[in-house]
């Protein structure tokens, strides 16, 4: 008997397979088939949706409320759209403390106004105790396109940038569950990427928010898309000190840890410095860095390679098995 496995929703390769083999054939149309972070609709409109099941619902650096707004807003931004309106659907388990719900709603309001989006429609369902875990949230967002991803224009020499230290959301959630009994100063990077919008006019060819599957998974998807190998320098990837310590103790590869407020982008070689300077002037991306470039000398088409700090080369595969469900 074949059953749905957790890995099918992990953001890794099994999920990609599921989407391509099970979902696309059923619903195929030209908007869905593109498999962008958002659907790009007639009239320069972008539409996206996401469900949030994070456990625990409050974690260092954020909560399910900040997450459900930022996540959807960020999907629009990396698709080239300015987010305008959101829907909000709540699925609540009977017995959730009202004060908890109010706290979440407040953080939704705060995050929405920070992102200059309005919640314009919604839905509330309450299910009997045990049939959901406290609260799940779905949001959808629409916005108008201000830029356009052009992965087909990527050329060797173009630079790969990240907007800040990676992996903190995934680690913060992992530690918040306390299975490892390790305390750390790591906080989730959950935050809006709205400030990246102007970059679409400054030489950015492609953007993706780094979520489930982490930096390595996003890079390997990018490599498949652009038709050139990518080479990233381990030494250039920003990690916070607290994260470095914790992943060593836990034996986790930080390249596979999720973020909720960081993006990876490919920038034209000639514009890379300017884009980096722009990012370094923003509070949320002060630690942005150029981590690598599009290659035509090392590696093969479709490969994302990492030059390790030891000087060796290693292939970056997309995430395969996820031991930590419900991080967002």
């Amino acid at each position: 008997m074949k059953q749905v496995s957790l890995e099918m929703g992990s953001g890794g390769r099994l999920m990609q397979e599921f989407i391509k083999e099970k979902l696309l054939p059923v619903f195929k149309n030209r908007y869905l088939n593109a498999l962008h972070d958002s659907a790009l609709l007639p009239g320069g409109l972008a539409l996206t949706t996401d469900s949030y099941t994070v456990d625990p619902i409050f974690f260092p650096g954020g909560d399910i409320g900040t997450l459900c707004v930022n996540g959807t807003v960020n999907d629009l931004v990396v698709s080239g759209a300015r987010p305008e309106y959101l829907s909000l659907a709540l699925i609540i388990e009977e017995g959730l403390e009202l004060a908890t719900l109010e706290k979440i709603l407040l953080s939704i309001r705060k995050t929405a106004s920070r992102n200059r989006v309005s919640i314009v429609t919604g839905d509330t369902k309450v299910v009997p105790r045990g049939q959901a875990d406290r609260i799940y949230i779905n949001t959808a967002g629409v916005g108008h396109l201000v830029g356009c991803p052009e992965p087909e224009k990527v050329r060797p020499g173009d630079k790969i940038l990240v907007t800040g230290p990676v992996g903190e959301h995934g680690l913060a959630i992992m530690l918040a569950r306390n299975n490892f009994r390790l305390s750390s100063r790591v906080r989730s990077d959950c935050g809006p990427l709205l400030f990246l919008l102007p970059l679409w006019k400054k030489g950015v060819l492609w953007m993706r928010d780094i979520t489930r599957g982490g930096l390595a998974t996003v890079l390997s998807e990018l490599a498949e898309k652009v038709g050139y190998p990518l080479l990233v320098e381990e030494e250039s990837i920003p990690f916070s000190r607290a994260l470095r310590g914790a992943v060593e103790i836990l034996g986790i590869d930080p390249l596979y840890l999720a973020c909720e407020g960081r993006a990876l982008m490919v920038v034209k070689e000639s514009e890379a410095k300017r884009v980096l300077n722009f990012l370094k002037r923003q509070a949320a991306s002060r630690e942005a860095a150029i981590i690598g470039e599009v290659q035509d000398k090392i590696g093969r088409k479709g490969e994302a390679l990492l030059r390790t700090s030891s000087g060796g080369l290693r292939l970056l595969e997309p995430l395969t098995s996820e031991l930590l469900p419900r991080i967002c």
């Binding site: 000398k297 090392i298 290693r314 292939l315 395969t320």
Partner: peptide
């Protein structure tokens, strides 16, 4: 081997 390896082979 599966996860890390083919990157070691240069063209």
């Amino acid at each position: 081997e599966y996860k890390y390896s083919s990157g070691g082979r240069k063209q």
